[in-house]
């Protein structure tokens, strides 16, 4: 007895079964793509596919509230935030996919397959009886029922999530907001600074004369060489971005960052297991 089959069969009928099989294939494929795609923006789009598929599945299973929350909150809000960040960072930024730990991929693959097989055995062996009749908890009364549960039985954990949200907000402030420690420079200060500096004129923007106009694409100078001034210094330092050669035959504008060192910055010389 296949669990998925049971799940599908217990809902409304043949249409749901068909929807399940189509969406299952799509969502699993998209999830795999999400993991394997080297470019973050592709991953984000594939994640949207996964979430939308799930939303449709929820809807088919008679849980409209969940379906809409899935679309509004995850696809609508969270994913859009992801995309904003990716746009700022550079939409075509890609991670290095080179694996530096010997045997890591093989072992991870084997372990993953092992867990998959075990869980398949679990679900396959489980005798899942016919699901509860698609009664009042599903369909039109789904929202009311959920509300009832949230505000009675699960009111405490529900209220508790506020702690989580406050923590998240506080954390975002701590990690992203830098308090000003010196007085804000006035218009006059800025003007003076600019005139005294090397570049009285505005700096070139990213992407000028280049093939793309992403934030991490350096502008090209008249001789075809990329201008490092056109990039935000933080972004220029980012590994993996701005390494790309803007055009054929043009030397790389910036020294490449150290590749394949995504174990995090490692400031300690005496750490165990030096990086290979």
């Amino acid at each position: 007895m296949n669990a998925a089959h049971v799940l599908a069969a217990s809902t409304v009928g043949a249409g749901a079964v068909v929807a399940f099989w189509i969406l299952a294939v799509i969502s699993v494929a998209a999830a795999l793509g999400l993991v394997l795609a080297p470019r973050a923006v592709h991953g984000a789009v594939l994640l949207a596919v996964v979430m939308l598929s799930l939303a449709v599945l929820y809807g088919v299973a008679g849980a409209p509230f969940l379906a809409f929350v899935q679309i509004i909150v995850y696809t609508g809000a969270v994913l859009m935030l992801f995309l904003f960040v990716l746009m700022i960072v550079g939409v075509s930024a890609a991670d290095s996919m080179r694996e530096t730990i010997r045997g890591q991929r093989l072992a991870a693959g084997l372990a993953g397959i092992g867990l998959l097989v075990l869980l398949a055995l679990v679900v396959g062996h489980a005798a899942i009886g016919p699901a509860a009749p698609a009664g009042s908890n599903y369909g039109v009364l789904n929202v009311q029922r959920l509300a009832q549960l949230i505000f009675t039985r699960y009111v405490f954990p529900f209220e508790l999530t506020s702690a989580l949200l406050i923590t998240a907000a506080l954390g975002a402030m701590v990690l992203a907001h830098r308090e000003r420690t010196s007085p804000k420079p006035s218009q006059r200060d800025l003007a003076r600074q600019r005139v005294r500096g090397d570049h009285p004129a505005p700096l070139p923007g990213p992407g000028v004369y280049a093939r793309g106009d992403a934030a991490d694409m350096p502008a090209l100078l008249p001789d075809g060489t990329p201008s490092p001034l056109s990039l935000n210094p933080v972004m220029a330092r980012r590994r993996g971005s701005a390494i790309r050669v803007p055009g054929p035959g043009v030397p790389a504008p910036l020294p490449p960052g150290e590749p394949g060192k995504d174990g995090g910055p490692d400031a300690e010389p005496d750490r165990e297991g030096a990086h290979p």
Partner: peptide, 28 residues
């Protein structure tokens, strides 16, 4: 288990943040 999961996250999230706030040796 639902309450337990929420509690798990409530206790973990602040700890993740606190871990990253060392004054010295900030990279590590």
């Amino acid at each position: 288990l639902l309450t337990m999961f929420v509690a798990l996250e409530v206790l973990s999230l602040p700890l993740y943040l606190l871990c990253g706030l060392a004054r010295r040796r900030r990279l590590i």
